[in-house]
């Protein structure tokens, strides 16, 4: 096991790099879309003073930021 990890780790890393490169623009567009759609959800929660919606909205915002971090 300990010997196998580095051998399988390298191709996996390069696969991830290829995936990242191939879908870079798509990934960035997705994160922008997620954040902007989520904007309206969070805003709705704030205006209605519904903290449940705001909570969900902020969780989605973190997902959008994580996608931005991965592909950015």
């Amino acid at each position: 096991m300990t010997q196998a990890s580095p051998q399988t780790g390298a191709p996996q890393a390069s696969q991830a790099a290829v995936f990242k490169k191939k879908y870079k623009i798509t990934g960035m567009v997705v994160s922008v879309v997620i954040m902007w759609l989520d904007y309206f959800l969070v805003h709705q929660g704030l205006v209605a003073n519904d903290m449940g919606i705001v909570n969900i909205g902020m969780a989605i915002m973190f997902v959008g930021a994580a996608v931005a971090y991965y592909f950015g």
Binding site: V54, M58, A65, A68, Y69, G72
Partner: peptide
């Protein structure tokens, strides 16, 4: 990249805003 750095710094500002400056969920959102 600016996008990556911005994402990390945004999370940091939320944490510091909440723990050191008393921002609640409503304010941070």
């Amino acid at each position: 990249s600016g996008g990556k750095s911005g994402a990390v710094s945004w999370v940091a500002s939320l944490l510091i805003g909440a723990y050191f400056f008393g921002g609640d969920l409503k304010l941070l959102a």
